[in-house]
């Protein structure tokens, strides 16, 4: 029985790609949601997946997170098969489509649970810090149904970043956020970049490309229609492409 292996048993080897998916296909029912997608994300990159409703963004993110088992193809994290060892999940922080918050636990308790299971040192202090950062220190004892959609979204984002993961996957992080919230999130992403975290986020077409993104992939009907580098960042494969390695 594969009981949980300790993180030290899964040494992190520096690889060229933080996340890699090779000819990934996902069927749901008799419908093919993803059609042979290949994507490779370097450590320290911020990648945006753009696409309309039902284009397969969420499914792709869930595959990359190791939650959905692909019908064909494979996903690797730092060269290791996704989810092959439970402790590897500690490298990932995920913001799912839904909030992932327990309605009967307070905001602080929700974060505390994640911090404890991920083995964060001094979880209480870390959670207090995270709540302070998103400006909810005084509402930490509220339960999720008692706060607004935007507040829940902020807590969920804080949940994804809580244990200092190497890779962060965000599914439509801007949903429900007001202008201040959006600014905060962009700043948070910039900080993640400075700290060497790899980020992959899925957004609607309306949101528009973000200044912080290195590359934008556009998804339509389960296929990539475009793979372009944003203005400030030359495309991958060009000689002077920025290579950021994760912080030690």
């Amino acid at each position: 029985m594969p009981l949980m292996r300790h993180a030290s048993e899964c040494p992190v080897v520096e690889r060229e790609f933080a996340l890699e998916a090779q000819s990934l296909s996902v069927d749901y029912g008799h419908r093919r949601i993803l059609r042979s997608l290949t994507i490779a994300i370097r450590p320290g990159e911020i990648v945006e997946l753009r696409g309309g409703n039902g284009s397969g963004k969420t499914t792709l993110l869930r595959c990359l997170a190791g939650i959905v088992r692909p019908t064909l193809g494979r996903v690797t994290w730092f060269g290791e098969p996704a989810g092959c060892c439970t402790a590897m999940r500690k490298w990932l922080g995920v913001l799912a489509h839904e909030s992932s918050l327990y309605s009967h636990l307070t905001l602080a308790e929700n974060l505390l649970f994640v911090a404890r299971v991920c083995g964060v040192e001094r979880p209480r202090e870390r959670v207090a810090e995270a709540l302070h950062e998103i400006g909810l220190a005084d509402r930490s004892q509220c339960t999720p149904p008692k706060v607004s959609r935007g507040t829940r979204q902020r807590v969920s984002i804080a949940r994804a970043f809580l244990h200092g993961p190497r890779v962060v996957l965000l599914d439509e992080p801007f949903t429900g956020l007001d202008a201040a919230g959006r600014d905060w999130l962009v700043a948070r992403l910039a900080r993640a970049r400075d700290e060497g975290q790899t980020v992959c986020l899925a957004t609607h077409e309306q949101v528009g490309s973000l200044a912080v993104c290195d590359r934008v992939f556009t998804l339509h009907d389960g296929k990539f229609t475009a793979n372009e580098a944003t203005a400030d960042h030359p495309p991958i494969g060009v000689a002077n492409s920025k290579q950021r390695m994760p912080a030690a």
Partner: peptide
């Protein structure tokens, strides 16, 4: 309880084995 708000996905994504 886990099905509400997609908590199940949230739990499966944490570093915990299914057997635990």
């Amino acid at each position: 309880i886990e099905r509400e708000n997609g908590c199940w996905d949230g739990l499966r994504q944490l570093p915990v084995a299914g057997s635990v």
